[in-house]
């Protein structure tokens, strides 16, 4: 880790004033679980670290206009224990492995964390480019994307992102110049070049809260992970179903850890319309969800896992 100066603002205004126009200017410290690792690896060498944990307005889960406003500083542990949050979000939080990470990590941090791609983490760049070509498709890609056409092959590390997309949630991004709200679905982007990022967050912005609209949808999240803990999911799915009786009138199905962004499985959403959720329809929806998957040399198994995750999430959602 390289030296940095440290600021401990008490207000959002102070905090945004301490950020810079470039990524290297400042790092925003909340839970720190990702930031410190990036800094120890010298992947991120901010000149200043701005601790936002003392900004009270970023705390808490509040009911608001029928929906929820989840402060960026709400810890994963708090979310996992929330009685207010939709089930898929609670489940996604519960899956986040290790009590320590849940105590430290924040919902804002979950959305802003950098990819875990080992080429990136070992210093070969976000897109792992060598001689104008990504190292990933011909390399060690067992944990990489099965959707997308490159050049980004990492998977979005966010655990909450897929559930938030199914819920139609938005994030609020605040800079010294003002604030904007962005749907979570468009917060994540697949970077096209090494100078781009995997979210639309700008270096002078802080993600301050997540706005989750009111929902009566049946929701669930299912994660496939080899180890019980301290392990990343191999594939995950969050679903949100609008039901009329036992028939699905509208479905949101979003996959996690299979693409550089949470991956909206439109075909699965279509396939579920008008159906009741059974083993058979869930299975078909799973199949539909992975249509168009383009697995790499080592990760065809993730197509299977994504399919299973969708099926199990759907069955979970309709289970009492």
């Amino acid at each position: 880790m390289q030296a940095f100066e440290y600021a401990n603002p008490n207000t959002l205004q102070e905090a945004t004033g301490l950020l810079g126009a470039q990524w290297g200017d400042a790092g925003v410290l909340a839970g720190g679980t990702d930031l410190l690792s990036l800094m120890k690896e010298n992947l991120h060498t901010p000149k200043r670290v701005v601790n936002i944990k003392n900004i009270k307005e970023l705390e808490g889960i509040h009911r608001s206009g029928g929906g929820l406003r989840i402060g960026a500083l709400v810890t994963i542990d708090e979310l996992a224990k929330s009685h207010e949050a939709p089930r898929s979000l609670v489940e996604a939080a519960e899956y986040i492995p290790s009590p320590q990470i849940r105590h430290m990590g924040t919902v804002g941090g979950d959305l802003c964390q950098r990819p875990r791609c080992w080429y990136y983490r070992q210093g070969m760049g976000l897109l792992a480019m060598k001689d104008g070509k990504s190292l990933v498709p011909g390399g060690e890609n067992r944990y990489h994307a099965i959707f997308g056409e490159g050049p980004a092959y990492f998977v979005s590390a966010s655990s909450l992102g897929p559930a938030l997309v199914t819920l139609g949630a938005r994030v609020k991004l605040v800079s010294a110049k003002g604030s904007r709200e962005v749907p979570v679905a468009s917060f994540f982007v697949a970077p096209a070049d090494e100078n781009s990022r995997e979210t639309v967050l700008r270096p002078d912005e802080i993600l301050t809260e997540i706005i989750v609209p009111n929902t009566t949808m049946k929701t669930a999240t299912y994660e496939v992970r080899q180890k019980e803990a301290l392990d990343w999911p191999l594939a995950a799915a969050s679903v949100a179903l609008t039901m009329s009786g036992n028939k699905v009138t509208a479905a949101k199905v979003v996959l996690g850890h299979v693409a550089p962004t949470p991956h909206v499985a439109t075909a699965a959403e279509e396939a579920l319309k008008g159906q009741s959720v059974t083993e058979a329809t869930a299975e078909s929806a799973g199949k539909a969800a992975v249509e168009g998957a383009r697995p790499l040399s080592q990760n065809a198994y993730k197509v299977t896992l994504a399919k299973v995750a969708v099926k199990r999430a759907l069955l979970g959602a309709v289970k009492a």
């Binding site: 080992w118 080429y119 070992q122 070969m124 060598k130 190292l135 011909g138 390399g139 060690e140």
Partner: peptide, 10 residues
């Protein structure tokens, strides 16, 4: 896990 292209321990 090693990467043959770069030789890196991943």
């Amino acid at each position: 896990i090693m990467d043959q292209e770069t030789g890196k321990y991943l």
